[in-house]
Design a protein around this nucleic acid. Structure first.
Lengths: 355, 355
DNA sequence: CACTCACATGGATACGTTTTCAAGCATCTC
DNA sequence: GAGATGCTTGAAAACGTATCCATGTGAGTG
């Protein structure tokens, strides 16, 4: 009963036509209504499904879309992946997934695998720098970055401008004006500069002056935005970094609280860092927001479950994924575009006035 | 500069040998040390990477592994996916991902896509029933179920045995004795029967008698275990169901609390249900655990962040994924096996004595 | 009616690989 | 030294499709 799948040849024979005709009918090419009907009927009757293998080989490309994220355990990347999948499904494209663990080496390996599979369209949350991604582009891949850009060569610090810090806080305009798109690399990013700036202003408005930043891998732009927002003189001890793991995040948070008991507010650069901050604060008997105020980048469902519920900078993870997928599908040969999506400060209960 | 990839033919020419020899050398076949060396050198120099397209077509199968989960936004499935990815990477296999949204129709569609891609090994958290999966098996797919089994035909209620309810609670033996593997279908499951039973006993030990169960899609086995554990007479109003969405989960939880203010404990069948329960309880000013005790199936990082931290039934999501992937790789033609992994009750602070 | 033009059609080819098969060659055995 | 044995090797076929090209058919035009 292990009937092997019918091939285009079987359909052609059964319908009494040539394989070329069958191929045309199924690909939407021109054919007489009469034969078209017959071919379709036979195909349906034989339960024929064209083999992606043959097609791909013939056209020298795999239809699919590659998706590379650091860690699916991080809810934000889960949201992002769901967005990509939604868009890909509506386009009928399969998605091949890789988890990099925020390790450039694994990332490079996965890129190699995609290359081997002839997957020529990739959307990635990059861990490695330009040196990882240059080969991919050179091999003809269309790659769209999501959520982050690959690290620039060292020394390319973002130009810090403190001029607009003096602006008055106003009502957030419904579609916040996106900043100038970085460069020509195709990417979909959240406007984290605006998000961070809004959060810092909010904290300053509550009276906080010693605000710390908990950063993770790929948070360079957020860190830069933070430094810009707090303005010089920067207190460098108040900016600490973790690697991608939960342990590392906890260690960073705990170390921060212990080494700088004078800090009054913490801005966590991602939801895993926020998680760590809540945990570390509790462990050290610091009450939120009484002893320390907390703002977390990323809105995730459980932010509302904490007590107090966490004030967050929300970025539209699902939309980022969806747009990135749209971009990678349409930017076939066209000029790459960068999309910046708005963030939103959602005030809940984890920040209080300085006391 | 858009150099097209070198093919096996190029390597053969450059090395002055036949393509068959190159293929053999690269596939680990036998060859004289002399030619082997030369071929390898040339291949490296040309940066040759064998095309998966050609290989797949020749062997009539795509190397990859299909992975179908209901929702990547659910942390548990994120963990599971990470496990699958880890195993697949170590085997050098690509993973093509699909998110079913707990919708049998979408699931069937995704199975069709995998079939079209000639992905013949799938690991799935099934949403649909046997009717969805029979065609897949008939088409020659090796499918391993993870976390759940496809719904049986209506009427196949699990045989409820209440005999062992009278056993004394003991120390949990390090490797809890797995129950008899259901049938011949290959699957990797958590021992949710034991997990639920332990949790119910724990709650009863605290004095609770009116315990409710919040179920979601695919929680049939958990519901059955719950019914078995609380024993007759079952209070059917205390078992409520939600679909896969967060809204639905919240509605179910809120409805439950309002319609049965007399309940004293809730067992949430999954982490999204647990999330909803916490939220609904807070909204209705029910304090945990003073007014209502709460146990959640699934240990997720944020369970510890709630206050009080949630008492949970932990199941090893990552291991489930990893083992499922191992199974789908090794169960090439062999006899299918079912693996049951232990669960663990992790007591934190969300349960208290009846008052 | 002859000619052209548009279009439908099928044969043949190419895509890059693995695998089968037979041939070539050196070594071993009697 | 003749035959057998083992290993290495390359030519060729096959996988299922899309597409080029030539052929055939009908209608339309002068």
């Amino acid at each position: 009963m292990e009937a092997k799948r019918a091939t285009i040849k079987d359909v052609a024979e059964a319908a009494g036509v040539g394989v070329a005709t069958v191929s045309r009918v199924l690909s939407g090419g021109s054919a007489s209504p009469r034969t078209r009907e017959r071919v379709l009927a036979v195909a349906a009757q034989l339960d024929y499904r064209p083999s992606a293998l043959g097609r791909n080989l013939r056209q020298r490309r795999t239809g699919g879309i590659g998706l590379l994220v650091p860690d699916l355990t991080d809810t934000f990347f889960g949201q992002l992946a769901e967005g990509v999948l939604a868009c890909a499904r509506s386009a009928g494209e399969p998605v091949v997934l890789g988890s990099t663990g925020d390790d450039p080496e694994q990332e490079a390996e996965l890129v190699g695998m995609l290359l081997e599979q002839s997957v020529d369209r990739v959307i990635a949350v990059p861990s490695g720098g330009a040196d990882t991604w240059a080969p991919a582009a050179r091999a003809g891949m269309t790659v769209v970055f999501a959520d982050r850009l690959p690290a620039e060569r060292p020394g390319d610090a973002l130009p810090g401008s403190t001029a607009d810090l003096m602006l008055l806080d106003g009502v957030l305009p419904p579609p916040p004006p996106p900043p100038a798109p970085p460069t020509g690399v195709p990417a979909v990013l959240a406007d984290d500069r605006a998000g961070i700036r809004t959060a810092v202003r909010y904290l300053r408005g509550l009276g906080h002056r010693r605000i710390a930043f908990l950063g993770g891998p790929g948070h360079d732009r957020r860190v830069a935005a933070f430094r810009e927002a707090v303005g010089p003189p920067a207190d460098e001890d108040l900016v600490v970094f973790a690697t991608g793991s939960r342990d590392s995040a906890y260690a960073a948070a705990s170390g921060l609280f212990q080494s700088r008991p004078d800090l009054t507010a913490v801005l966590a650069g991602g939801n895993m860092l926020g998680e760590a901050a809540v945990l570390a604060a509790r462990e050290l008997d610091l009450r939120v927001p009484r002893d320390v105020s907390l703002v977390m980048y990323d809105d995730v469902p459980w932010a509302e479950l904490c007590s107090p519920p966490l004030t967050v900078i929300a970025q539209p993870g699902r939309d980022i994924g969806y747009r990135a997928c749209e971009l990678v599908l349409r930017t076939a040969g066209r000029r790459p575009r960068t999309v910046v999506l708005p963030t939103e400060l959602i005030v809940r209960g984890s920040c209080g006035p300085l006391r």
